[in-house]
Design a binder for these strands. Structure first.
Lengths: 204, 204
DNA sequence: GGGGTTGTCTACCGAACGGTAGACATCGAT
DNA sequence: ATCGATGTCTACCGTTCGGTAGACAACCCC
Protein backbone atom coordinates (compact mmCIF):
# COMPACT_ATOMS: atom_id res chain seq x y z
CA UNK A 1 0.00 0.00 0.00
CA UNK A 2 2.49 2.66 1.07
CA UNK A 3 4.56 2.35 -2.12
CA UNK A 4 7.75 3.66 -0.64
CA UNK A 5 9.35 3.45 -4.04
CA UNK A 6 11.66 0.97 -5.68
CA UNK A 7 15.26 2.10 -5.27
CA UNK A 8 14.86 3.25 -1.69
CA UNK A 9 13.10 0.07 -0.56
CA UNK A 10 15.78 -1.92 -2.32
CA UNK A 11 18.62 -0.31 -0.45
CA UNK A 12 16.74 -0.45 2.85
CA UNK A 13 16.33 -4.19 2.39
CA UNK A 14 20.00 -4.60 1.53
CA UNK A 15 21.11 -2.66 4.58
CA UNK A 16 18.89 -4.69 6.88
CA UNK A 17 20.07 -7.91 5.25
CA UNK A 18 23.71 -6.93 5.84
CA UNK A 19 22.85 -6.33 9.47
CA UNK A 20 21.17 -9.70 9.89
CA UNK A 21 23.61 -11.69 7.76
CA UNK A 22 26.35 -10.14 9.85
CA UNK A 23 24.70 -10.81 13.18
CA UNK A 24 23.17 -14.26 12.54
CA UNK A 25 25.19 -15.48 9.61
CA UNK A 26 23.83 -16.21 6.15
CA UNK A 27 22.23 -19.53 7.12
CA UNK A 28 20.99 -18.19 10.44
CA UNK A 29 19.16 -15.19 9.03
CA UNK A 30 15.72 -15.70 7.52
CA UNK A 31 13.96 -13.78 4.80
CA UNK A 32 10.96 -13.46 7.09
CA UNK A 33 13.00 -11.74 9.80
CA UNK A 34 14.74 -9.41 7.37
CA UNK A 35 11.53 -8.31 5.69
CA UNK A 36 9.72 -8.01 9.02
CA UNK A 37 12.44 -5.70 10.33
CA UNK A 38 11.89 -3.47 7.31
CA UNK A 39 8.13 -3.54 7.86
CA UNK A 40 7.21 -5.46 4.75
CA UNK A 41 6.11 -9.00 3.85
CA UNK A 42 8.58 -11.60 2.70
CA UNK A 43 7.02 -11.68 -0.75
CA UNK A 44 7.87 -8.04 -1.20
CA UNK A 45 11.49 -8.83 -0.48
CA UNK A 46 11.31 -11.66 -3.00
CA UNK A 47 9.92 -9.21 -5.51
CA UNK A 48 13.17 -7.25 -5.39
CA UNK A 49 15.50 -10.22 -4.91
CA UNK A 50 14.15 -13.43 -6.43
CA UNK A 51 16.22 -15.70 -4.18
CA UNK A 52 18.10 -15.49 -0.91
CA UNK A 53 21.29 -15.88 -2.86
CA UNK A 54 20.45 -12.90 -5.05
CA UNK A 55 19.93 -10.85 -1.91
CA UNK A 56 23.31 -11.96 -0.64
CA UNK A 57 24.99 -10.91 -3.86
CA UNK A 58 23.39 -7.50 -3.67
CA UNK A 59 24.68 -7.20 -0.09
CA UNK A 60 28.20 -8.21 -1.07
CA UNK A 61 28.24 -5.70 -3.88
CA UNK A 62 26.83 -2.91 -1.74
CA UNK A 63 29.26 -3.61 1.08
CA UNK A 64 32.19 -3.54 -1.31
CA UNK A 65 31.10 -0.24 -2.79
CA UNK A 66 30.53 1.30 0.61
CA UNK A 67 33.90 0.25 1.97
CA UNK A 68 35.67 1.44 -1.16
CA UNK A 69 34.05 4.86 -0.78
CA UNK A 70 35.00 5.12 2.86
CA UNK A 71 38.60 4.16 2.25
CA UNK A 72 39.01 6.32 -0.83
CA UNK A 73 37.69 9.32 1.04
CA UNK A 74 40.00 8.65 3.96
CA UNK A 75 43.02 8.63 1.66
CA UNK A 76 42.20 12.00 0.10
CA UNK A 77 44.91 14.51 0.77
CA UNK A 78 46.97 12.20 2.94
CA UNK A 79 50.65 12.05 2.11
CA UNK A 80 52.98 10.23 4.49
CA UNK A 81 53.23 6.47 4.64
CA UNK A 82 52.15 6.22 8.20
CA UNK A 83 49.53 8.92 7.85
CA UNK A 84 47.83 6.98 5.09
CA UNK A 85 47.85 3.66 6.89
CA UNK A 86 46.44 5.23 10.00
CA UNK A 87 43.74 7.06 8.06
CA UNK A 88 42.49 3.81 6.56
CA UNK A 89 42.35 2.08 9.92
CA UNK A 90 40.55 5.04 11.42
CA UNK A 91 38.01 5.17 8.61
CA UNK A 92 37.22 1.47 8.93
CA UNK A 93 36.76 1.83 12.67
CA UNK A 94 34.49 4.82 12.16
CA UNK A 95 32.36 2.78 9.77
CA UNK A 96 32.22 -0.03 12.32
CA UNK A 97 31.13 2.43 15.02
CA UNK A 98 28.11 3.60 13.06
CA UNK A 99 27.35 0.18 11.61
CA UNK A 100 28.53 -2.59 13.97
CA UNK A 101 27.28 -5.44 11.81
CA UNK A 102 29.31 -4.29 8.83
CA UNK A 103 32.61 -5.96 9.78
CA UNK A 104 30.69 -9.02 10.91
CA UNK A 105 29.15 -9.24 7.47
CA UNK A 106 32.54 -8.88 5.80
CA UNK A 107 33.85 -11.75 7.88
CA UNK A 108 30.80 -13.81 6.99
CA UNK A 109 31.49 -13.05 3.34
CA UNK A 110 34.93 -14.58 3.74
CA UNK A 111 33.46 -17.62 5.44
CA UNK A 112 31.06 -18.25 2.57
CA UNK A 113 33.88 -19.09 0.22
CA UNK A 114 36.08 -17.44 -2.38
CA UNK A 115 33.28 -16.91 -4.93
CA UNK A 116 31.15 -14.96 -2.48
CA UNK A 117 34.10 -13.00 -1.17
CA UNK A 118 35.15 -12.07 -4.67
CA UNK A 119 31.79 -10.33 -5.17
CA UNK A 120 32.69 -8.15 -2.26
CA UNK A 121 36.40 -7.76 -2.88
CA UNK A 122 36.13 -7.26 -6.61
CA UNK A 123 35.05 -3.67 -6.11
CA UNK A 124 37.99 -3.13 -3.81
CA UNK A 125 40.58 -4.50 -6.18
CA UNK A 126 41.94 -1.14 -7.36
CA UNK A 127 42.43 -0.15 -3.74
CA UNK A 128 44.09 -3.48 -3.02
CA UNK A 129 46.54 -2.87 -5.81
CA UNK A 130 47.24 0.63 -4.57
CA UNK A 131 47.88 -0.73 -1.10
CA UNK A 132 50.36 -3.33 -2.32
CA UNK A 133 52.21 -0.75 -4.42
CA UNK A 134 52.17 1.60 -1.48
CA UNK A 135 53.71 -0.97 0.83
CA UNK A 136 56.26 -1.96 -1.79
CA UNK A 137 57.27 1.65 -2.29
CA UNK A 138 57.60 2.07 1.46
CA UNK A 139 59.92 -0.89 1.59
CA UNK A 140 62.03 0.44 -1.26
CA UNK A 141 62.24 3.75 0.58
CA UNK A 142 63.31 1.99 3.73
CA UNK A 143 60.31 3.41 5.55
CA UNK A 144 58.61 0.05 5.87
CA UNK A 145 60.20 -3.18 7.04
CA UNK A 146 60.99 -5.46 4.11
CA UNK A 147 58.60 -8.39 3.62
CA UNK A 148 56.12 -9.73 1.11
CA UNK A 149 53.77 -6.76 0.63
CA UNK A 150 50.69 -8.83 -0.28
CA UNK A 151 51.19 -11.12 2.69
CA UNK A 152 51.65 -8.10 4.93
CA UNK A 153 48.42 -6.61 3.63
CA UNK A 154 46.63 -9.86 4.42
CA UNK A 155 47.95 -9.88 7.96
CA UNK A 156 46.96 -6.26 8.46
CA UNK A 157 43.48 -7.08 7.20
CA UNK A 158 43.07 -9.97 9.62
CA UNK A 159 44.30 -7.89 12.54
CA UNK A 160 41.85 -5.08 11.83
CA UNK A 161 38.81 -7.20 11.02
CA UNK A 162 39.59 -9.52 13.91
CA UNK A 163 39.73 -6.74 16.45
CA UNK A 164 36.40 -5.49 15.11
CA UNK A 165 34.56 -8.80 15.11
CA UNK A 166 35.88 -10.84 18.00
CA UNK A 167 33.95 -9.04 20.70
CA UNK A 168 33.28 -12.26 22.63
CA UNK A 169 36.97 -13.02 22.70
CA UNK A 170 37.80 -9.55 23.82
CA UNK A 171 35.31 -9.98 26.60
CA UNK A 172 36.91 -13.25 27.70
CA UNK A 173 40.49 -12.04 27.41
CA UNK A 174 40.36 -8.47 28.57
CA UNK A 175 37.19 -8.48 30.65
CA UNK A 176 34.01 -6.45 30.38
CA UNK A 177 34.55 -4.12 27.48
CA UNK A 178 31.66 -2.66 25.55
CA UNK A 179 30.62 0.44 23.73
CA UNK A 180 32.40 3.28 22.02
CA UNK A 181 35.19 3.62 24.52
CA UNK A 182 36.15 0.01 23.90
CA UNK A 183 36.17 0.58 20.17
CA UNK A 184 38.49 3.54 20.56
CA UNK A 185 40.79 1.48 22.74
CA UNK A 186 40.91 -1.30 20.21
CA UNK A 187 41.65 1.16 17.45
CA UNK A 188 44.57 2.49 19.43
CA UNK A 189 45.87 -1.00 20.05
CA UNK A 190 45.57 -2.10 16.44
CA UNK A 191 47.15 1.12 15.27
CA UNK A 192 50.13 0.58 17.55
CA UNK A 193 50.33 -3.04 16.48
CA UNK A 194 50.30 -2.20 12.79
CA UNK A 195 52.84 0.53 13.30
CA UNK A 196 55.13 -1.93 15.03
CA UNK A 197 54.71 -4.36 12.18
CA UNK A 198 55.47 -1.74 9.54
CA UNK A 199 58.41 -0.07 11.15
CA UNK A 200 61.83 -1.20 10.02
CA UNK A 201 63.73 -2.77 12.88
CA UNK A 202 67.45 -2.86 13.37
CA UNK A 203 68.05 -6.36 14.61
CA UNK A 204 67.28 -9.45 12.54
CA UNK B 1 23.38 -52.90 15.58
CA UNK B 2 27.17 -52.51 15.57
CA UNK B 3 27.23 -51.14 19.11
CA UNK B 4 30.47 -49.25 18.71
CA UNK B 5 30.34 -48.34 22.38
CA UNK B 6 29.28 -45.21 24.17
CA UNK B 7 32.33 -43.06 24.86
CA UNK B 8 33.93 -43.63 21.49
CA UNK B 9 30.77 -42.88 19.54
CA UNK B 10 30.31 -39.79 21.66
CA UNK B 11 33.70 -38.36 20.82
CA UNK B 12 33.36 -39.33 17.16
CA UNK B 13 30.12 -37.37 17.00
CA UNK B 14 31.69 -34.38 18.72
CA UNK B 15 34.65 -34.36 16.35
CA UNK B 16 32.41 -34.52 13.31
CA UNK B 17 30.17 -31.82 14.76
CA UNK B 18 33.17 -29.55 15.27
CA UNK B 19 34.10 -30.11 11.65
CA UNK B 20 30.63 -29.26 10.38
CA UNK B 21 29.96 -26.41 12.80
CA UNK B 22 33.30 -25.00 11.71
CA UNK B 23 32.68 -25.43 8.01
CA UNK B 24 28.97 -24.54 7.78
CA UNK B 25 28.44 -22.58 10.96
CA UNK B 26 26.17 -23.62 13.80
CA UNK B 27 22.94 -22.69 12.04
CA UNK B 28 24.11 -24.05 8.72
CA UNK B 29 25.01 -27.52 9.98
CA UNK B 30 22.19 -30.05 10.44
CA UNK B 31 21.96 -32.95 12.84
CA UNK B 32 21.08 -35.17 9.90
CA UNK B 33 24.29 -34.34 8.08
CA UNK B 34 26.48 -34.74 11.15
CA UNK B 35 25.03 -38.12 12.06
CA UNK B 36 25.09 -39.29 8.46
CA UNK B 37 28.80 -38.46 8.21
CA UNK B 38 29.41 -40.62 11.26
CA UNK B 39 27.31 -43.40 9.76
CA UNK B 40 24.48 -43.31 12.22
CA UNK B 41 20.90 -42.07 12.33
CA UNK B 42 19.98 -38.68 13.72
CA UNK B 43 18.12 -40.29 16.61
CA UNK B 44 21.31 -41.95 17.75
CA UNK B 45 22.98 -38.58 17.90
CA UNK B 46 20.02 -37.27 19.87
CA UNK B 47 20.44 -40.18 22.25
CA UNK B 48 23.87 -38.87 23.24
CA UNK B 49 23.05 -35.17 22.98
CA UNK B 50 19.39 -34.42 23.66
CA UNK B 51 19.43 -31.14 21.76
CA UNK B 52 21.55 -29.40 19.15
CA UNK B 53 22.58 -26.95 21.80
CA UNK B 54 23.81 -29.73 24.08
CA UNK B 55 25.92 -31.00 21.19
CA UNK B 56 27.36 -27.54 20.72
CA UNK B 57 28.29 -27.30 24.37
CA UNK B 58 30.06 -30.63 24.21
CA UNK B 59 31.97 -29.39 21.18
CA UNK B 60 32.97 -26.15 22.88
CA UNK B 61 34.19 -28.03 25.92
CA UNK B 62 36.10 -30.59 23.86
CA UNK B 63 37.70 -27.92 21.71
CA UNK B 64 38.83 -26.00 24.77
CA UNK B 65 40.36 -29.09 26.32
CA UNK B 66 42.11 -30.04 23.12
CA UNK B 67 43.60 -26.61 22.56
CA UNK B 68 44.71 -26.39 26.18
CA UNK B 69 46.52 -29.71 25.83
CA UNK B 70 48.23 -28.69 22.63
CA UNK B 71 49.42 -25.38 24.03
CA UNK B 72 50.51 -26.79 27.37
CA UNK B 73 52.56 -29.43 25.62
CA UNK B 74 54.14 -26.87 23.34
CA UNK B 75 55.27 -24.82 26.33
CA UNK B 76 57.01 -27.74 28.06
CA UNK B 77 60.69 -27.12 28.43
CA UNK B 78 60.64 -23.81 26.61
CA UNK B 79 62.43 -20.98 28.37
CA UNK B 80 63.00 -17.76 26.45
CA UNK B 81 60.27 -15.18 25.87
CA UNK B 82 60.39 -15.41 22.19
CA UNK B 83 60.88 -19.17 22.17
CA UNK B 84 57.67 -19.64 24.12
CA UNK B 85 55.58 -17.31 21.97
CA UNK B 86 56.81 -18.98 18.82
CA UNK B 87 56.16 -22.47 20.22
CA UNK B 88 52.51 -21.61 20.88
CA UNK B 89 51.99 -20.21 17.42
CA UNK B 90 53.63 -23.25 15.89
CA UNK B 91 51.53 -25.65 17.93
CA UNK B 92 48.30 -23.93 16.93
CA UNK B 93 49.28 -24.02 13.28
CA UNK B 94 50.15 -27.71 13.58
CA UNK B 95 46.71 -28.38 15.03
CA UNK B 96 45.14 -26.43 12.19
CA UNK B 97 47.11 -28.45 9.65
CA UNK B 98 45.75 -31.76 10.87
CA UNK B 99 42.28 -30.42 11.63
CA UNK B 100 41.46 -27.49 9.32
CA UNK B 101 37.97 -26.96 10.70
CA UNK B 102 39.25 -26.47 14.22
CA UNK B 103 40.12 -22.77 13.97
CA UNK B 104 36.94 -22.20 12.00
CA UNK B 105 34.97 -23.68 14.84
CA UNK B 106 36.76 -21.51 17.36
CA UNK B 107 35.86 -18.45 15.35
CA UNK B 108 32.26 -19.62 15.15
CA UNK B 109 32.30 -20.04 18.92
CA UNK B 110 33.22 -16.38 19.23
CA UNK B 111 30.46 -15.40 16.83
CA UNK B 112 27.83 -17.23 18.86
CA UNK B 113 28.19 -14.82 21.76
CA UNK B 114 30.06 -14.49 25.02
CA UNK B 115 28.20 -17.30 26.80
CA UNK B 116 29.11 -19.86 24.16
CA UNK B 117 32.66 -18.62 23.94
CA UNK B 118 33.07 -18.85 27.66
CA UNK B 119 32.33 -22.58 27.49
CA UNK B 120 35.31 -22.87 25.21
CA UNK B 121 37.59 -20.33 26.82
CA UNK B 122 36.84 -21.32 30.39
CA UNK B 123 39.12 -24.31 30.08
CA UNK B 124 41.83 -22.08 28.72
CA UNK B 125 41.66 -19.53 31.50
CA UNK B 126 44.74 -20.73 33.40
CA UNK B 127 46.73 -20.49 30.20
CA UNK B 128 45.31 -17.05 29.52
CA UNK B 129 46.46 -15.89 32.92
CA UNK B 130 49.89 -17.38 32.37
CA UNK B 131 50.13 -15.60 29.03
CA UNK B 132 49.22 -12.23 30.52
CA UNK B 133 51.73 -12.67 33.35
CA UNK B 134 54.31 -13.77 30.83
CA UNK B 135 53.81 -10.70 28.69
CA UNK B 136 53.83 -8.44 31.74
CA UNK B 137 57.09 -9.97 32.96
CA UNK B 138 58.57 -9.51 29.52
CA UNK B 139 57.66 -5.84 29.61
CA UNK B 140 59.15 -5.39 33.07
CA UNK B 141 62.32 -7.06 31.79
CA UNK B 142 62.43 -4.75 28.84
CA UNK B 143 62.26 -7.72 26.48
CA UNK B 144 58.75 -6.90 25.29
CA UNK B 145 57.49 -3.53 24.17
CA UNK B 146 55.43 -1.86 26.88
CA UNK B 147 51.65 -1.94 26.36
CA UNK B 148 48.51 -3.35 27.93
CA UNK B 149 49.32 -7.08 28.15
CA UNK B 150 45.71 -8.30 27.95
CA UNK B 151 45.02 -6.11 24.95
CA UNK B 152 48.20 -7.32 23.32
CA UNK B 153 47.15 -10.93 23.90
CA UNK B 154 43.82 -10.18 22.26
CA UNK B 155 45.49 -8.70 19.22
CA UNK B 156 47.85 -11.65 18.95
CA UNK B 157 44.87 -13.98 19.14
CA UNK B 158 43.04 -12.20 16.35
CA UNK B 159 46.11 -12.17 14.14
CA UNK B 160 46.69 -15.90 14.54
CA UNK B 161 43.07 -17.02 14.26
CA UNK B 162 42.51 -14.62 11.39
CA UNK B 163 45.38 -15.91 9.34
CA UNK B 164 44.07 -19.44 9.91
CA UNK B 165 40.46 -18.79 9.01
CA UNK B 166 40.41 -16.13 6.34
CA UNK B 167 41.39 -18.40 3.48
CA UNK B 168 39.03 -16.66 1.05
CA UNK B 169 40.59 -13.33 1.84
CA UNK B 170 44.06 -14.69 1.43
CA UNK B 171 43.01 -15.99 -1.93
CA UNK B 172 41.70 -12.59 -2.97
CA UNK B 173 44.62 -10.59 -1.62
CA UNK B 174 47.63 -12.78 -2.31
CA UNK B 175 46.31 -14.95 -5.12
CA UNK B 176 45.98 -18.72 -5.44
CA UNK B 177 47.31 -20.10 -2.23
CA UNK B 178 46.25 -23.50 -0.96
CA UNK B 179 47.58 -26.47 0.93
CA UNK B 180 50.35 -27.08 3.40
CA UNK B 181 52.88 -24.82 1.75
CA UNK B 182 50.47 -21.92 2.14
CA UNK B 183 49.95 -22.72 5.78
CA UNK B 184 53.69 -22.72 6.40
CA UNK B 185 53.99 -19.39 4.65
CA UNK B 186 51.24 -17.90 6.76
CA UNK B 187 52.84 -19.20 9.91
CA UNK B 188 56.11 -17.54 8.94
CA UNK B 189 54.32 -14.28 8.26
CA UNK B 190 52.34 -14.29 11.49
CA UNK B 191 55.43 -15.22 13.44
CA UNK B 192 57.35 -12.31 11.97
CA UNK B 193 54.39 -10.02 12.59
CA UNK B 194 54.04 -11.04 16.20
CA UNK B 195 57.76 -10.74 16.74
CA UNK B 196 57.65 -7.22 15.37
CA UNK B 197 54.78 -6.38 17.68
CA UNK B 198 56.54 -7.77 20.73
CA UNK B 199 59.98 -6.32 20.18
CA UNK B 200 60.77 -3.15 22.02
CA UNK B 201 61.44 -0.34 19.58
CA UNK B 202 63.71 2.60 20.11
CA UNK B 203 61.64 5.44 18.75
CA UNK B 204 58.25 6.40 20.23
C1' DG C 1 -10.08 7.43 -18.27
C1' DG C 2 -8.23 3.05 -19.85
C1' DG C 3 -4.14 0.10 -19.77
C1' DG C 4 0.29 -1.32 -18.81
C1' DT C 5 3.86 -1.11 -15.12
C1' DT C 6 5.26 -1.34 -10.51
C1' DG C 7 4.76 -2.55 -5.89
C1' DT C 8 2.56 -5.01 -2.01
C1' DC C 9 -0.26 -8.25 -0.37
C1' DT C 10 -2.83 -13.09 1.00
C1' DA C 11 -2.61 -17.82 0.44
C1' DC C 12 -0.21 -21.74 -0.14
C1' DC C 13 3.54 -25.50 -1.07
C1' DG C 14 7.20 -28.96 -0.51
C1' DA C 15 11.30 -29.73 1.81
C1' DA C 16 14.21 -29.64 5.67
C1' DC C 17 14.76 -28.85 10.30
C1' DG C 18 14.98 -30.06 15.43
C1' DG C 19 12.80 -33.10 18.29
C1' DT C 20 9.40 -37.04 20.28
C1' DA C 21 7.61 -41.85 20.84
C1' DG C 22 8.51 -46.06 21.06
C1' DA C 23 10.00 -50.73 19.09
C1' DC C 24 13.84 -53.70 19.15
C1' DA C 25 18.32 -55.61 19.73
C1' DT C 26 22.43 -56.41 22.39
C1' DC C 27 24.82 -57.07 26.61
C1' DG C 28 26.42 -57.63 31.52
C1' DA C 29 24.96 -59.08 35.88
C1' DT C 30 22.49 -62.07 38.71
C1' DA D 1 17.44 -67.74 31.92
C1' DT D 2 15.98 -63.37 33.05
C1' DC D 3 16.05 -58.48 33.55
C1' DG D 4 17.36 -53.85 33.41
C1' DA D 5 20.55 -50.74 31.05
C1' DT D 6 22.45 -49.28 26.89
C1' DG D 7 22.46 -48.33 22.10
C1' DT D 8 20.31 -48.02 17.50
C1' DC D 9 16.59 -47.94 14.78
C1' DT D 10 11.77 -46.68 12.15
C1' DA D 11 8.07 -43.67 12.12
C1' DC D 12 6.22 -39.47 12.80
C1' DC D 13 5.19 -34.45 14.31
C1' DG D 14 5.05 -29.34 14.35
C1' DT D 15 7.56 -25.49 12.79
C1' DT D 16 10.14 -22.83 9.88
C1' DC D 17 12.31 -22.16 5.71
C1' DG D 18 12.85 -20.54 0.83
C1' DG D 19 9.97 -19.98 -2.87
C1' DT D 20 5.42 -19.87 -6.15
C1' DA D 21 0.78 -18.19 -7.76
C1' DG D 22 -1.94 -14.85 -8.29
C1' DA D 23 -5.18 -11.01 -6.60
C1' DC D 24 -5.18 -6.20 -6.13
C1' DA D 25 -3.99 -1.40 -5.63
C1' DA D 26 -1.48 2.69 -6.90
C1' DC D 27 0.82 5.21 -10.35
C1' DC D 28 2.21 6.95 -15.11
C1' DC D 29 1.34 7.72 -19.71
C1' DC D 30 -1.42 8.68 -23.57
Amino acid sequence: MPRTGGAERRSTLVEEAIRQFGREGYAGASLDDISRAVGVRKQTLLYYFPTKDALLEACLQAAGVRLAEVIAQALEGKEGYWERAEAVIHAVFALAAEWPEFPMFVREAGRLGPEAFERFAGVLDPLRRRAVDFLQAGMDDGQVRKQDPAMLLFTLYTAVIGSLTEASVLNAVVGADRGRASLRRREKEVTAFVRAALEPVGER
